[in-house]
Amino acid sequence: MNASELEPADRDPKVIRRTVIILFILMFVGGTAIWWKYTQQQARDQEEVVEGRSPRISRLTKNFAGICQDGESRGLDDLEGKIWVVAPIVPNHPEENLIQLAKMKDLAERYKGRKDFHLVCLSVADPEKHGYEELAKIAEEVGADINQWWFMAAGEKKMIGFLKDHLKMAHIKQRSGAEAEKLGELDIAAQLRVVDQSRRVRGEYQHFDFDFAHFKTEETKKALENEPGLLDRLKPDEREVAEFYLNMDAEWTKRMYKVIDYTFTETEPDSDPDYITGIVVVVGILGFIIFQGLRLRKRAKG
Rank of each mutant, 00 (worst) to 15 (best):
L186C: 09
V201D: 02
L192V: 06
K158N: 14
F162T: 01
D232R: 10
E181T: 06
I160H: 09
H166C: 06
L167K: 07
Q197E: 12
I160A: 10
Q174C: 05
D249M: 12
E181S: 10
E181I: 01
G184A: 07
S198L: 04
F244A: 09
V195F: 02
I160E: 12
A190T: 04
F208N: 03
V201M: 03
K168T: 11
K173Q: 12
R239Y: 07
D165S: 14
E218P: 01
V241I: 11
L192T: 08
R193V: 01
Y245G: 03
K182V: 00
R193E: 01
F210L: 05
K173L: 05
H166Q: 15
Q197M: 08
K221I: 07
K235E: 10
I188A: 02
K173S: 14
S176G: 12
R175N: 12
L231A: 08
K235H: 09
S176A: 15
L230F: 06
D187L: 04
H171T: 13
L234G: 06
V241K: 15
N247T: 15
E218R: 14
A189I: 02
E179Y: 06
R239A: 08
E156I: 07
I188Y: 02
F244M: 03
Y205H: 12
A154M: 05
Q197A: 14
V241L: 14
M152A: 04
E219D: 08
Y245H: 14
T220V: 01
T220S: 07
K173F: 01
L230V: 03
E243Y: 08
N247V: 11
H214C: 04
Q206R: 15
F244K: 13
G161H: 07
T253H: 10
K158F: 04
R239P: 00
L183T: 10
V241Q: 13
F212V: 00
K216V: 00
F162E: 08
A190P: 09
R193T: 01
D196G: 01
T253L: 02
E204Y: 09
V195E: 03
K182G: 03
G177H: 11
L192G: 05
E225W: 04
E204L: 11
L230Y: 06
A190H: 05
K235C: 00
R193F: 00
M248F: 11
H207C: 08
G177K: 10
N247Q: 11
H207E: 13
F210Y: 11
G184K: 03
Q197F: 04
G203V: 02
K216R: 13
D211W: 05
G229N: 05
T253P: 01
L186M: 10
A223F: 06
Q206P: 00
D211T: 13
P228I: 00
A190Q: 05
F215W: 12
M248K: 15
L231E: 08
I172H: 08
K221M: 02
N247E: 12
F244P: 09
V194A: 02
A178W: 01
Q197G: 05
G161M: 10
Q191A: 11
A250H: 12
D211A: 12
E225A: 06
K164G: 09
E240K: 15
I172T: 13
I160F: 03
K182N: 10
F215V: 00
E243S: 03
R233I: 01
